[in-house]
Structures are given as C-alpha cells and as structure tokens.
Design a protein around this nucleic acid. Structure first.
Lengths: 342, 342
DNA sequence: ATGAAAGCGCTAACAT
DNA sequence: ATGTTAGCGCTTTCAT
C-alpha cells in the first residue's frame, strides 16, 4: 500500500493542507464538520504523517542515540531498560548501536548519529572508560557533544568537560571491602578488570585505601587484574589457589569475575563462603540466583539509566544541569561472603 | 556550534549546492581543484549532511525498527547482537523499542516506526507468540507490514502471512527429551512457560509426542507450566518435590526456569544431576557457567538475528524470500543431566 | 564541469 | 475558520 501524503488527504477532503495539518496537530480550531471529514479520511487510508518532513522543519527528531559497548552484558541492558522507561514518557525512541568496545565503530556510529540529527546522545563504556584517556578520541567526542546534547554514563573525558552520570564505584568498592573486613577477614585479594580501564584503577585504589585504613597488608601477588569475563575470574582464582599463602576473601571487579572465581573455587573442592568469601560488583540479575547467591555492590543500573535520560532531557531543553550526577551504590549482602573462621 | 548546511559550504566555496552535493556523494565528476577546496571546507567546519533531508527525498532512512519485549532477557539481546553485526555491514542502524510484552506499547511503537519511515522492521515476542493469536493485533501488524518490510522472529500471525525466521522449537524439545530418555529416564516432568504462548504449547506437544513414541507415560501432575522466570522454576520444582511420586528428570521451557528448578532442588538437598536431571532451553551464556553447567538446547540466537536481517535485507530490496526460514536447534549436553541410576 | 531550479512532505506565518 | 506560500536541507534533472 502506497504511503499517502497530507496533500492526498487534503485533496480528498476538499480542503488545504494547512487545515489537515491543523487537525493532525490540533494546533488551531477547525470546524467540527471538516475535522470529522478529515479524521475519517485519515482513519480510512491509515495516513501517518512523515516524521522526517516534520523533523526537517522543527529541527527535532524525537530520537536519542545510544552508544553501548555490549548488548549482551546484563549491566548495560539494565541501564538501557531503565533509560527506555524514562524516554518513553516523553515519546523519545532509541537509535541503538553496539560497538563491542571498538573505537572505530564508536566513531562511525558517532557520525551516523549526528547525520541523523538525534536530539541527544548517551554514551556508555568504550573510550570514556580509559584510565588515561586518549586525546584524539576525547576530542572527537567533545566535538560531537558540542552540537548534540550528550550524557556520559560511568565514564568521562579528559578535563571532565562533558555532562556525566555515574555510580560512585570508589565508594562502592570501599563498602564491599569494608564488609569483608567487618567479617573478620584479614587476607583479601583483588580479582579481575583491565588495568587500563578507569573502573579497574579506581576500584583498586579504593581497595588499597580501605585495607590500609584497617591497617591490613596489601599483598601484590593477590592483586590479579585481567579482564571482565567469567573466564578471567576462573583463571585468576586458579592462580590464587596455586599460591602457598592464600587469602580468605576475594573482591572481584564485577559479578562475572565473581561467578568465574566461585566456579573455580568450588571445582577445586573449596566451599564458598566457608573456605573463601567472594564479593562481586554490579548486582546483575543472576547474582542473586547463582549458587551461592552472590554478595555484591549494586550500581542501581536501572536508576542510572533513568537518571541519565532525565539529565539529558534537561540538557536538551537547555536547562542548567550539574556536570556530574553521582548515584549511590548499594551493598547487597548475600551468601557468598561469611564471617572468617580460623 | 551551529550545524552548517550544504548552502553554507557552497557559499564559502563559491560554487553551487549541486557541486557540493556531487563531491559529497561522488555522483558526478568535479574538477580536482574545486573538489579539494570543498573537501577542505567540509573538514574544517565538520560539516555533515542532514540525513533527514536526504531521506525525505530518497525515501529511505537507513534505519531498521526493532520491537523487542525485554531488553534484559539474554536471549533477545543475543539475537539483537547478531542482528547488529549483520546490519552494520550495510550501514543500517536500529531504532529500538522495549515493549515489556505490553500490546499497547507495541501498537504505539509500531506507529512510531511507521511515522519515522524505517526501511524495515523486526518483530520479536509479544503478540506474535500468542498460542491462538488475536485477530485485532494480528491485523494491525499485517497492516503495518504491508507498507514496511517486516520479519518476525520466533513467532507468527494467523494464516502465517508474514515472513518469519524461527528456531524449530518443536524439534529442539524432542531432542532434549529424547536425550533424557536415552539416559534411561522414564519419569520426566515438564516445567514452566505460559500456556497461552505458542512457544509453550509447541514445546508441550513435542514433549508429549516424544514420551509417547518411547511408550512412556505422560503424568498430568508432572506438567507444571507457569511463566518463564527463575521464580517460576523455583516454585514449580518446589511443587514437584512435594509430590509422593517424583520424576527423575525435568524438561524446562527455558534456562531461567531450569536455573530456578536447580536452585530449589539443591536447596532441598537433592543433587543435580545425580538425584534429578534438569535440561533447559535457549543456551543463554550463563547456562554453561552455572553450577552445575546446564544441559540445554541452543536456539542459535546470534545466528537467528543475523539471518533475520539477511532475510529483511532481501525483502527491502524486493527480492523473493521464503515465507519461513527455519534455524536448526542444537543440543548442548553438559552437567545438569546424567544417566538414570536406580 | 557547473549552475538553476524543482520538489521530497510537512509546518507556520500571513492573508483572507 | 480556512487558504496560500515560503521554507527546512538535500538530490537530481535539465541547461549551459
């Protein structure tokens, strides 16, 4: 079926396009009889105005561009779901991209979003999580952000010049490590994460700080970053268990690493949490269904997504917004951690 | 920074807009010196053509609309990730929606996608999974599909008039149940799923058929549909274990239900798989990291997504396509199922 | 090789 | 209350 235009409807109703436009947008009074006639026609032909023509004129598309590194990562999808909830209320839709952390793909999508004239943009992961940043990539993003309202989630660029919403990972880590200390653990390891990512380095800083404040020793051979995957957790726990001197508790940079770590420990005949306590980070849905249920730090992903959209909406309507909005992390104490028993 | 237009560039270069358009699209030869000049200007001002203006004219947007019921469900996101891979190669982007299975939201997004004149549409879950269909909802979808090339994933509408790509769930179920039978199980239960969903009913049919072919009894009190959640698995396994006569193996409609079922069984002191075998469906990433690793049926979600986009691309370029493309399921034998021991 | 101008489908100011 | 018309930013004949 061919798409009709506002002209077709106007002709059929013997009125001008302006009148049709008026009934569509109820932007001015129209005589009841003509309105009825037009509405009937619209219904009959299933006419739907071309949003592009309108956008061209109004300079707004009703579309928010989202750049995500990994659609299969539950943390990101939880953020997305939260964002969608909020965006739906204002009629915004998402133009979604999946960059698998590939900077070129990020760039390519960045241009695409600009060409499409999205009303705003949310950026997660990838380049904004680099520990030391990358001038060229940062500049590109800042440049795009100068024409499109942009909010960064859990990341930043050099100089913190872009608006961002983030969980306080440093604080979350302190909470988790302190929890282990409160349980009487004195020998605690740090597992997973890529050292060139800011999320890892800030967690590691928090980890060391918390141990030092409790006058506990930081043992370098128990600090085993690697990546963010389950396999990484398996591998590094393996390594840990091969040491003569083993820790009694482990802080993992995320729940995937925690799952891998627990799995390996269990495979090797250790009991979690009785022999070794494990805490994760993120509170992915599965963490409280795993066996044992995982003690972890919630990033309030849904909330994070919603907040980011709220901030973006202000940005889009030229309201003043804080450069940085922090989301409070929440410690979820479950079954993978227990009091130290000698 | 204000967005420039092709006119601005043309003025700065002392040429007509036509010439600028020509260098942007390399659609006609342009003298080398003028091209260089224009390219420099484009670079300098970071000019990016307005995709909407172009789309208005060309009648194509480069956007594919995707309707998904639940962004936090790993099966759907895996499909999405597969689809994205394929779409990226042709420069298509996704306008994503999340309907949480709400039919009104589906309708609302359906119109939105049409207004936005997406080039094609992928529909997952929701109304297309209704066991007995729903005439009104079906009609609406068919109506939209008559103007926008549409591919349904793992679902259909009455009369099968729309193009679809689907895993053979019936066959997958037969494979899983047969696997349990081959392991010597004679007492097998069916857990989870909503009975008004076609995925549940077709799995149940396959389940019964396979048992009958093996001359095994189908016991109604062991058929415990409910929903697709982990909690549903927990609840129904609880129910199963409260029976005097218990099965030795369980087929679950998906991995979530399987996880819940295993959890409850373990909580109650049963060993999986020694006391009771459990198989799932979908092969979500977590299923082979769970303890025990879950025997399941892979829907080849990534492949499913890719194929759907390939089919859609043909549809969009007016090539002939089969109404139905089947994806072969794959049995993944892991640790949650074992041979029956009396 | 380049320019002028029509038109994609719509909205909004200006007339009537 | 309704119609006329000028764009929005681009592509694409048709001229030159």
């Amino acid at each position: 079926m061919k798409q009709m235009t506002i002209y077709d409807i106007a002709k059929l109703a013997n009125v001008s396009v302006a009148t049709v436009s008026r009934v569509i947008n109820s932007t001015a009074p129209v005589k009841d009889s003509t309105r009825k006639k037009i509405e009937a026609l619209i219904q009959q032909y299933q006419f739907q105005p071309n949003a592009m023509a309108r956008s061209l004129l109004k300079k707004e598309t009703g579309i928010i561009g989202i750049i995500v590194p990994d659609l299969t990562n539950p943390f990101y999808t939880e953020v997305l779901a939260g964002a969608e909830t909020e965006a739906f209320t204002t009629g915004h839709t998402f133009l979604l991209t999946n960059t698998i952390g590939n900077y070129e793909k990020e760039s390519s999508y960045l241009s695409m979003l600009r060409e499409k004239r999205v009303d705003g943009m949310i950026f997660l992961g990838g380049r904004i999580n680099l520990r030391n940043g990358n001038d060229e990539l940062d500049q590109e993003l800042i440049q795009h952000a100068s024409t499109i309202p942009t909010v960064l989630i859990n990341g930043t660029v050099k100089g913190n010049v872009l608006t961002r919403v983030a969980t306080d990972e440093y604080k979350g880590t302190c909470m988790a490590v302190q929890h282990l200390i409160d349980y009487g653990h004195k020998h605690i390891a740090f597992l997973g994460g890529e050292m060139h990512m800011s999320t890892t380095s800030s967690k590691l800083r928090a980890f060391k700080k918390t141990l030092k404040d409790a006058r506990l020793q930081v043992r370098e051979e128990w600090i085993l970053p690697d990546s963010f995957s389950i396999d990484s957790g398996r591998k590094q726990m393996q390594q840990l268990l091969s040491l003569k001197k083993k820790p009694t508790a482990v802080f993992c940079v995320n729940d995937f690493v925690a799952i891998g770590a627990i799995k390996t420990a269990v495979d090797q005949g250790f009991n979690v949490p009785d022999d070794i306590s494990v805490v994760g980070f993120d509170d992915i849905p599965l963490s409280h269904h795993f066996i044992p249920e995982i003690t972890t730090v919630s990033q309030e992903a849904h909330e994070l997504g919603r907040t980011a959209i709220q901030v973006l909406q202000k940005l889009m309507s030229h309201e003043k917004v804080k450069k940085h909005t922090a989301i409070e992390p929440k410690l979820m104490i479950r079954k993978s951690s227990a009091a130290y028993r000698r």
